[in-house]
Design a binder for these strands. Sequence first.
DNA 1: ACTAGCGACTCAGAAAGGTGAAA
DNA 2: CTTTCACCTTTCTGAGTCGCTAG
Length: 809
Amino acid sequence: MSDSEDDIPLSQINNGPIISKASTLILNAAPIDDSTPDPSEARTSVTISASQDKESSEDSDDIPLTQRKQQLETEKTLASDSDDDIPLADKRAATKQIMKQESSDDDDIPLAKKRKVQAKAKEVPVSKVASSPKRAASTVSTPAPSKKAKKDEVSKKKLKKEEEEREIYRWWEEQTSQRAGDNEDGGDGVIRWTELSHYGVLFPPEYVPHGIQMKYDGKPVTLTPEAEEVASFFAALLESDHGKNPTFQKNFFSDFREVLAKNPKNPRLERFDKCDFTPIWHQFQLDKERKKQLTKEEKLKLKEERQKIEEPFLFATVDGRKEQIGNFRIEPPGLFRGRGDHPKTGRLKRRVYPEQVTLNLGKESPIPPTLPGHKWGKIVHDQQATWLATWKENINDTSKYVFLAPNSSWKGQSDMKKFDKARELKNYVDKIRASYTADLKDKLSEVRQRATAMYLIDRLALRAGNEKGDEEADTVGCCSLRYEHVTLEPPNTVHFDFLGKDSIRYENTVQVDHQVFKNLKLFQNQVGEGHAIFDRLTTTGLNKHLNSCMPGLSAKVFRTYNASFTCQQQLDRLTNADDTLPDKILSFNRANREVAVLCNHQRAASKSHAQQMVKIEDKIRTIKYQRMKLRKQLFSLDASIKKKRPDLAEDESDLDDDWIMQHDIDTIAKEREKVQTKFHKQNEKRKADGEPLQPDSELKDRLAKVEDLKVQLDKERGGDISVAANMTVHKLLDRIARLDDRLNATKIQATDKEENKEISLGTSKMNYIDPRIIVAWCRSYDVPMEKVYSKTLVQKFRWAQDIPDDWKF
DNA sequence: ACTAGCGACTCAGAAAGGTGAAA
DNA sequence: CTTTCACCTTTCTGAGTCGCTAG
């Protein structure tokens, strides 16, 4: 075993796939060479050391986490090409970026550029005229035409698409200074609109009682509609995790009793464990079944009816432009589904009425109608806000908002701003790292804690970690980490184990800079169990400091920066221009996965995952079994091959006699069934066609053939190898080669599946990876965008397509 | 000057819905 | 050819971040 391999922790070798969990990483603070004038130079001059002993890793670490992981995984390949691994283009792009920054900072756009931008801006009103909101709305509502007009329909669709394309507000082609929130001092005080109109919000339908009685103490009880509704909320969740959660049950029952007590007609229910909601639950199951049984036409009709109701709410008009609205529905009443160990989970979320809703509208805009007999709570004209409607939810007394959809200009602009900010951090990060590395030894514990936290946020992409109240789930981020969340193992290994946002567990083992280790130990000892490690640090304080390092910098920018940086770098590393399209997409997904692991984006493994894995393992074994048989035939034809091809002489792993026996039995059973169903089906068809039926003797003949197969399999198991007369060594070798390919493909599929079991790629793709990285990648490797972005994401990131081909993060 | 609380926004996984390939 | 199942997309709404303001 080589030195370097020795340093890879066992855990990583064993459970290779599960990278984030229990993988040990080496993280040392960057000793930054201050003499380097250009920060981008500092980055590119990083050397990737081949050996991972603690000594040498000290100099090799100006590298985000994921890069380090790769480093560990692929040391052998990297050993030879350390420095030239980083493309020149990267260097150039970085320098270019700085120049661009400097010039746009003081609003000093070159004249030539300005002219171009203005010209483009002028085009906008033209397209606006071409598609007045009214006309567009009528296009959307075009009902499905008859089959005869199919051709017509296709061309109409094309037209519609073109029209929609024209309708898109290409804000990214306009002069930047006009854009709200584009200035450095944040977006406050900025007027976002002068004209705003929309149709308000869509309320859920009133409750329709079903009359199914729940039971109490074994006896059916009659409830008022209001109480029945609440009982039904719970009944629907009876078999879910929520329904089985004691806190959920307790909170639900307490609120349920309150509702019951409001009307004397309701019975008094004292104990939850005497309640039986199964009658309602069963009814719901039935309803679901019935809904599934509906014909295609009926389903389509229902869908169209739904869409007709939604239609007026779909779009808002902002300064004369049509913009899609994200969530125009008022959240229906139900039971609060808090994540993790939320103290309020299961409480009744009450129905919202118009009186509780505030609308944000232009002064001139008509006030939309609302539920009969009701009035809107308030109408405001807040031109600095981007929300269209708001209301308070009764569980935590927090605000809910109606916003425009992700493809809107408001969302797009702030998205672009976010990624530009992260990209700007590239130019500051070396300085910032140098500064916090120095601060790790500061005498003031406040400063020291801040530096240590910055190290963790930078290197591990942790969230800031605001303080939380008693009425919320106990989850933490960097600043709120407590004693028990961190375990130190000398000389410099740190184990993290805590619940983060959404109560998702963060479990990671890393090797850190010695000073960081020392600091953590010191802070831990000072505070003791149950207390925050960074007792002198608040997120506000941290962010204030970060803002002084770089305008607009806050903790979350590091997450965006690290994610995008990692993605860019992984894509560059993994993609080959001459790969096939599926291979390129595999590389893409790998890069994406790297980011998801970094950000700890998880999902619940599907219930059938284990089953699916068994199935795929079985598939692998079946291939191996077939391969073994071919090998044996090969050797019986020509024994000399054993020596010529020692690789073929080796036995296939994990093929045991028991499995083979069972496999043969299963094969025969399946074959029998197949023959029988086929026979019966054929006869049924003949019957329908009025042809004479096949006699039972035919079935017997066919089944006899299966028996022959059985005999042959039994023989083969006994070591009796039969080779077909026309079989040749060449043919057999060919077949084995093909099986090997299939085996490999299936194995990769299995690994991939296992690796992805609990990793969610969507969140990073949607929120953390600069879409321009992906657009540029798609262009340079000739991959259609639709292969990596869903329809909605393509729309959301339309702005990102306006970049030069060689764009780099 | 500090802090708690809150408003408005981004980010998050679960669940529902849709689709296309395998059985 | 139909049905089933696995996977992907969209919807939903809860959970964070972060700056501001009031006391």
